[in-house]
């Protein structure tokens, strides 16, 4: 899409923002299919389950939206989540051992997760921009590093949160406020803030400009390196927030935590209408993409129509169809 033609000259169908609506259309079709296949699909508890489940990938994917729109990629988010989760649990266990009150431990645990997320994001960002290395390579390396670190911290096993903390931390995932589970409030807040930052601030416009054409952005006196680094730091922060609601769920982390989350986050972003090459996209599409991804798994679990062995094939087909739908419309 180059310069928009004169509004009066185009038919009304061209003026509807299809790129924003088509991910929603895909989700709607999936919901209709789900409701037809299973009576329990639209039950309140199932809808809550699916939305809560999508919060992890959704929150991470908000950060991924920034990275991808700026023309980058981050393959390390799944491993980073596992590493931050493992460190947060070990940190809280250690502080409990020092005799700190549980409330203080929880607050410091959350601070620790945020600090680690920011640090991990900074590592990626600065290595990419200062080291002038392709983001694919840096974050692929980081993927291996974080994954190994969590396995090392866990001594090859599983890191479990001290039972004394469980009572206080559980409500972060299982509790709700005004009938809506806490993870959804946090997911919503991250989405709103992410959307405002991306679409309503100068920083956000710079992110788009860099993704569209980095050279032009540089000639326009946009601080390209700083903005790009910041997108990876935002990604790290989003991972930390996702971890803060992930840890209360099972109170454990291991080498198998967050495996392939990076691909799910990238898929959510692309399904949501953001271009993988950067320069265009929006946060709300990403949210829809994340919900759509967890809905696919849910529908497959609720029905026996399709053989278990084909689950991943169905997911693959739906992802491709969802993107095909919006590209076809966009033309």
């Amino acid at each position: 899409m180059s310069t928009p033609p004169d509004a009066a000259a185009v038919p009304w169908t061209r003026r509807i923002p299809w790129q924003t609506l088509t991910p929603l259309l895909g989700l709607f079709v999936l919901v209709v299919i789900g409701a037809m296949l299973s009576d329990s699909f639209l039950s309140a508890s199932n809808v809550t389950n699916v939305l809560t489940r999508s919060a992890f990938i959704g929150i991470i994917a908000v950060g991924t939206t920034f990275v991808i729109i700026a023309g980058g990629i981050d393959l390390s988010v799944g491993s980073m989540a596992a590493f931050v989760a493992g460190s947060m649990i070990l940190g809280m266990n250690w502080m409990l051992g020092l005799g700190l009150a549980e409330g203080v431990v929880l607050a410091l645990g959350i601070v620790l997760a945020v600090v680690l997320g920011l640090a991990a994001g900074s590592f990626n960002g600065f290595t990419i921009t200062r080291g002038k290395i392709e983001p694919f390579i840096v974050t692929l390396g980081a993927l291996g590093i974080f994954r190994s670190l969590v396995t090392y911290l866990a001594d090859g096993g599983t890191i479990s949160l001290d039972f004394a903390m469980r009572g206080l931390i559980r409500p972060l995932f299982y509790g709700s406020f005004l009938g809506v589970p806490w993870p959804l409030w946090i997911f919503g807040a991250v989405a709103v803030i992410g959307s405002i930052v991306l679409h309503r601030t100068r920083f956000g416009r710079y992110v788009f400009a860099i993704g569209s054409n980095e050279d032009v952005a540089r000639y326009s006196a946009i601080p390209v390196r700083r903005i790009k680094t910041l997108t990876y730091i935002i990604q790290g922060l989003c991972v930390a927030i996702a971890v803060i609601i992930y840890v209360p769920r099972l109170g454990s982390a291991s080498g198998s935590t967050g495996v392939l989350w990076e691909l799910e986050a990238i898929a959510a972003v692309i399904i949501g209408g953001t271009a993988l090459k950067g320069g265009s996209g929006h946060v709300w599409g990403t949210i829809v993409g994340a919900v759509l991804l967890s809905t696919i798994g849910n529908v497959l679990n609720l029905t026996d129509v399709i053989s278990n062995y084909l689950n991943q094939a169905v997911q693959g087909v739906i992802i491709i169809l969802a993107v095909l739908l919006q590209r076809g419309r966009g033309r």
Binding site: S38, S40, S43, S45, N46, N49, R53, R249, L250, S252, S254, S256, T257, G297, N298, L300, N301, L302, D304, N308, N311
Partner: peptide
């Protein structure tokens, strides 16, 4: 009633069981 892959994994075990309970 049903069988699904949970991949010898805690997170998948949680999600698959949530869906079985809904169903």
């Amino acid at each position: 009633l049903a069988s699904e892959y949970a991949n010898w994994n805690r997170d998948d075990g949680f999600e698959v069981m949530q869906d079985f309970l809904a169903r």
